[in-house]
Design a protein around this nucleic acid. Sequence first.
DNA 1: GGGGCGAAGTTATACGTAAAACTTCGGATG
DNA 2: CATCCGAAGTTTTACGTATAACTTCGCCCC
Lengths: 396, 396
Amino acid sequence: MAVQQGAGGPPEAPGAPGTLEVPGTPEAPGVAGAPGGSADAGPAGAAGGSGPRAGRSGPPTSRDVARAAGVSQATVSLVMGGKWSGRVSQRTADCVREAARSLGYRPNLAARSLRTGRTRTALLVVPALTNEYFARVHSGAARVAAEHGFGVVVYPSPEGVGPARDPFASARAALDGVIASSMAADALAAIRGTAAGAEALPLVMLDSDPSSPGAAATVNLDIADGMRRTVRHLLSLGHRRIVHVAAAVDSWTFHVRARALAEALADEPGARARTEYAALNVEAGRCAAQRALAAVEDRPTALVCDDDVLAAGALKAARRAGLRVPEDVSVTGFDDLTLASALEPELTTVSLPAEEAGAAGMAALLAVLEGRVPGPRELPVVLRTRGSTGPAPGAA
Amino acid sequence: MAVQQGAGGPPEAPGAPGTLEVPGTPEAPGVAGAPGGSADAGPAGAAGGSGPRAGRSGPPTSRDVARAAGVSQATVSLVMGGKWSGRVSQRTADCVREAARSLGYRPNLAARSLRTGRTRTALLVVPALTNEYFARVHSGAARVAAEHGFGVVVYPSPEGVGPARDPFASARAALDGVIASSMAADALAAIRGTAAGAEALPLVMLDSDPSSPGAAATVNLDIADGMRRTVRHLLSLGHRRIVHVAAAVDSWTFHVRARALAEALADEPGARARTEYAALNVEAGRCAAQRALAAVEDRPTALVCDDDVLAAGALKAARRAGLRVPEDVSVTGFDDLTLASALEPELTTVSLPAEEAGAAGMAALLAVLEGRVPGPRELPVVLRTRGSTGPAPGAA
DNA sequence: GGGGCGAAGTTATACGTAAAACTTCGGATG
DNA sequence: CATCCGAAGTTTTACGTATAACTTCGCCCC
C-alpha cells in the first residue's frame, strides 16, 4: 500500500488514507511501514534501524499500525475490533489490515482486557484431567473457544476443593466465566461460592444437577438413558441378578446412574440389583467386583459399572474368580474410553460425547457472555455393544 | 499529608495508617470482606449490596485499598508486589495487607501485565492432552506454576501444526514462555519459528532432541535407559527374537527408543530384532503385532512396544493368534499408564515420571524467566516388571 | 438553498498497575 | 550549624487499547 491510491488521484493529497504521514515526529518522510507491500516481509530482515519505531523495542502497537496506514489509532482499533461496519470505509479498513499484517501486529491482550474488563478466557474445572473423559471435554471446549478467540485455562480440582485452596487464587481476576464439569457436590458448592459469589462470574454446569442453583446455563448428557439402555440390553440377554459397581463419588452424574438403574430394573419383575461401591480406580473396581462375585449361590450374572475403569477392575476380578466374560458373567462400563476397546473382551459401554459436551459447554458460556440465555441442552448417548456382554448363563 | 507521628498517637488522627476510612461512601463501618475468617462463607448469601464501595461497580482496586489504609496507591503496589523491603515500614505494610484482605482485593492481572509486559502465563504444547501421559505432564507443570503465581494454558497441537494454523494466534501476546513436550520434529520446528522467532519467547523443551537449537532449557527423561532395561530384562529371560513395535511418529523420543533397543541388543550375540511401525492407537498396534507374529517359523518371542497403547494392541494380537502371554510371547510397553495395570496380564512397562517432568519443565522455564540458566536435567525412569513378560518359550 | 443526516473519521480519556523520580524528615556527621 | 543520608512515602507517568464524544463533509430533500 503506502503511497498509491487507486485511481490516479494526486498522491500528495494530505491526510487521505492511503498516504503515509508521520505527524508530529520529525522524521524522514520516506515510506516506512511495509515497503513493497508484498506478502513476504523477508525472514528476520527488513526491520533494520530505518523502519518505523527504530528506537523502540517491543512488538508493534496499534499506533504503529496507525502511522503506517496513515490513520488514527482509533481507526485501527475500530478495524481490528471487527465492528467497523458503517464506521470505516472498505478501502481504509483494507489498508489498515494490510499494514497490520505487514508489521506483524497483534493486539495486546492485556491492554484490551484492561480496557474492556473482558479477558476472553474461561476456566474449566474438572475433577482430573488425567481422566481421558475430561481431557476430551477440554478438547471440545478449547476448540470452540479458539474459534471465538477465547482461551481456556483448566483447573483440575485437586483433592478437596475445600475453602482452603482457592481455585481462582491467581486466575480469578483474569476470567470471564467458569465451566464446571461433573464436579462433586461439595466441590461444586465451593466453586459456586467463589465464582458466582461476590464476582458473579457466569457459571456453566456440565453434567451436573440442573436443579442446583447458581448456574447461568446447563449442559447435560442423557446419562439416565445410557443406563436404561444398558439395563435393557442386559435384561434382554436374560440377566436378572445384577450388581451395580458404583463410583463412590458424591456427584450428580453417579446419582443419576444409580436411580436410572433402579428404575429400569423395576420394570422387570424378578430382576434385582445390589450395589457395591468403589473409588474410581482399577484396583478399587476389582475389589468391589470381587465382593460382588463372592456370593456363592445367587451370584450375579452381570456387573454394571459406573465407569470403564471400574469395569476393567471387574474383568480382572472375574478372571481371578475363574469366571469367563461374558459366558459366566457380563460386564458393562461407562464413558467409552480408549481403555474400553483395549481390554479383552472389549467392553460393552455407554459412549459419551465428551468433546461435544465440552464444546456445548463453551458455546453456552459464550452465549451467556453475549447476553443470551441458552436453554438447557441434553446430549444423547449411545450404547456400544461389544464382547463383554452375552446371554446370561442358563438362560434361554 | 498522611500526617503521621510516631507510635502511640491517638488512633483518631485522620489519615494515619492503621485507621480504616472509607471516604465518600456513607456506610456502616462494620468489617465487610471476610467476616469471621472462618472456613465457610455460607451458601449463596453474604454478598448483599451492603459491601464497601456500594456505589462503585467493579472489584476493588489498589486505589480502594490505598484509601482504606490511608496510604497512596503506590504504597499498596509496593506492598503487594512483595519487594517493599526498605521502602515501606513493617507497620504500614501490615496495615495495607489487612485492608486488602478485608476488601477482598485482587490485583488486576491485565493491568499488571500491561504495565510489566509479563503475563505470568506459560503455554504448554503437547501432542494430545487425551493421552494420559501428557495430562500428567500438564498436572506437574500446572502445580509448579500455581506455586509461583503462574498460569498454564495448554495447546494440544492439532493434526499438523503447520504454518497454516498458528498455535499462538490468540495467546501469543499473553505468554511469557513456552514448554513443548515430545513434539514431532516438524511441529517443533513450527513452534520454534513462531515462539522463538520475532518475539523470542523462552522455550523449554521436554523430552526432545537436546541438540536441537532454539531451546532456552531442556528437560529429558532417560528414555534410553528405560529401553535398555527393558531389553536386558528380556534377554535375561532368554528372549533372542524380538520385534520392536514402534510408533510411527517422527519425534525424538521414539528415535531414542529405537536406537537404544538396537544398541542394547548388539551386546548380545545371537539376538536380533525386527521393527514394525504403527500409529499410536490400539488397533494399529494390534495390526503391527499381528504382522510380527505372522512369521510361522522364526516367530518372535517378545514384542517391545513403544507405548502402552501399542502394547494393548499387541496383547490382542497375541490372543487372536492363539498365543498365551507371557508363556508363548512376552510383551512390554512404555509410559506406565493406567492402562498398563488394567490389562491382563498387567504390562511390564517403563514407568515415566510424567508429573515430575512437567514440574521440572515449568521450574526450568521459571528459572529462565528469572535470568538464570538451568542446566539440562535428565530424569530417571523405572522398569516395572509385571505379568506380561516371562521366560522365553523353550529357554532354560 | 439551507438544514439535517449519515458516513468516515479524529480527539480525548479511562482502565489499574508498576516504577522512576521526587519529597520530606529525623538523625548522624563533619 | 550546615550538610548529607537513608527511610518512608508520595506524585506522576506510561503501558496499549476501546470507545464515547466530537468534527468534517458530501449529499439529499424539502
